[in-house]
Write a protein that binds this DNA or RNA. Structure first.
Length: 282
DNA sequence: CGCCAGGTTGTCG
DNA sequence: CGACAACATGGC
């Protein structure tokens, strides 16, 4: 991976494809949006990021080299060769190969663990549009503004001081008490997310599921998107349908160390092809 | 209006 | 263990 420092910011020279639209809109994160002229903007790690792609270059606007190295290089998983991963996955199964081919520019973002935990608690039995709205309101209400209409994600410590009435403004329904339980367990260090990130994955799952509202699927999303554990394999309604109807002869253990990336390609492919499932049950 | 949404919990057999 | 209703809210 090569990059240049310019007066605009950091320019990442791509030797393979990265699609910002698919990466930000494939259901793994909820805080980036595209404004007019092809520029995406959002917040991660309490920092506003604005970026766009032009030809084989991604421009991170107004980003210094130190900030790029410390945050964004890992955030976009730039040290992993996704082309190699896709070749490996494509050899497993023809449908998986097709899913890789369909959206090869998706990357698994390495998000903040607490933000991922909170976000995927909110995601349960919910739709992506509304998830984004609830998270936006959460940040507007309890984070602080760092640039025009851009807010930090409120810390666990901050949310742990609130009660369910305080959260009613979010209209997040029954998930309010789950958010508070997560905030309390994390801020008190009863659940140490930095430690969980380093644990053997079976133990990490058990630790995360001590939080109310965190079951197998949410735990898996936290591991994959918030702790960059690429072997994690979240199974939601779309993945259930896909595994049953598109990949009946494949077992989850066949996907290997990059199962989470495989999952993302399959999830996105399925969501973009709902017609594949119209005539089936579940 | 009714079904569904990147599920989890509690309960019942 | 497995099945299944209930859960808040709003997108479509």
């Amino acid at each position: 991976m090569e990059y240049n420092k310019t007066k605009k910011g950091i320019e990442i020279i791509l030797d393979y494809n990265i699609c910002l639209d698919e990466t930000f809109n494939c259901g793994q994160c909820f805080r980036f949006d595209q404004d007019d002229n092809n520029v995406f903007s959002g917040v991660a790690f309490n920092k506003t990021l604005r970026l766009y792609k032009e030809d084989n270059v991604i421009v991170l606007l107004d980003v210094e080299e130190e900030e790029f190295i410390e945050y964004w290089k890992d955030y976009f998983d730039l040290d992993l060769n996704y082309k190699d991963v896709q070749e490996e996955l494509s050899a497993i199964n023809p449908i998986l190969k097709e899913a890789c081919r369909f959206a090869p520019g998706i990357r698994i973002l390495a998000q903040d663990p607490w933000e991922a935990l909170c976000s995927f608690i909110i995601s349960q039995n919910n739709n992506i549009k509304r998830i984004k709205g609830i998270i936006q309101k959460l940040c507007e209400t309890f984070g602080h503004e760092i640039s025009k209409n851009k807010y930090t994600f409120p810390s666990a410590s901050c949310l742990s001081k609130l009660n369910v009435e305080d959260l009613s403004i979010l209209k997040c329904g029954f998930r309010d008490k789950y958010i508070l339980d997560a905030a309390q367990k994390v801020s008190s260090n009863e659940i140490n997310l930095d430690a969980v990130k380093q644990m053997p994955i079976d133990q990490a799952r058990i630790e995360l599921m001590k939080i109310k509202g965190v079951g197998p699927k949410v735990a898996e999303c936290v591991l994959l998107y918030g702790m960059h554990r690429l072997e994690a394999f979240p199974i939601d309604v779309w993945m259930k349908r896909a595994l049953k109807n598109l990949l009946p002869e494949v077992s989850v253990s066949d996907f290997g160390e990059y199962a989470g990336i495989a999952q993302q390609y399959i999830f996105h492919y399925s969501r973009m092809h709902p017609e594949l499932f119209l005539t089936v049950d579940n």
